[in-house]
Amino acid sequence: MTEHVNPEFFKAFDHYKAMRIQYGEHHPITEQALMLTMHYTPEHIKEEMHQKAKELNLLPPVSGYTDDGEPMYCLEDIAKHFGISFEEAEQQLLKMMDNRQKVGLSNDGVLIDSNINFNRVQ
């Protein structure tokens, strides 16, 4: 079965590849282009990417879940998984949120209200 792919995905991906060649992988413009590419990536591809990232240990383990079953990650756990300081992880998170905002993407759900019920994995 062929899955539908939004044409915006191909435009965003082509733009990302061009920006990577022109500016390099870690340039803010390239990172913003990657954000847009990921935004338009079809869900079936995102799921494959997620599974492969888990296999390669590129994702930290889930820190806990909301009462609705949504997986949650603590910045402390992310920092520990990647062997970086909490401050570095925080700076990377703020940079990611800034890039998302610059390309018009919402940051809703990136940070949660400290009053939300968070059920920590034991």
Rank of each mutant, 00 (worst) to 15 (best):
M1I: 05
E3P: 00
P7M: 01
P7E: 06
K11V: 11
F13K: 11
Y16P: 02
A18I: 08
A18V: 08
A18K: 13
M19A: 10
Y23N: 03
Y23M: 02
Y23D: 01
G24M: 03
E25W: 03
E25D: 15
H26W: 09
H26T: 08
H27M: 00
H27P: 03
I29M: 07
A33R: 00
M35D: 10
T37P: 01
M38F: 07
Y40V: 01
Y40S: 04
E43S: 05
I45A: 11
I45M: 11
K46L: 09
E48T: 08
M49I: 12
H50C: 12
K54R: 15
L59N: 02
P60N: 10
P61Y: 05
S63G: 09
S63L: 02
G64D: 06
Y65H: 14
Y65D: 04
E70H: 09
E70G: 06
M72C: 13
Y73N: 01
C74D: 11
C74E: 08
D77Y: 01
I78A: 05
A79P: 00
K80H: 01
K80T: 06
E90A: 11
Q92N: 14
Q92L: 12
L93Q: 09
K95Y: 04
D98R: 12
N99W: 09
R100G: 05
Q101K: 09
Q101Y: 01
V103H: 03
S106K: 03
D108P: 00
V110E: 03
V110W: 09
L111E: 13
L111F: 07
I112F: 11
I116D: 13
I116Q: 11
F118H: 05
N119T: 12
N119M: 15
R120Y: 06
V121Q: 08
Q122V: 12
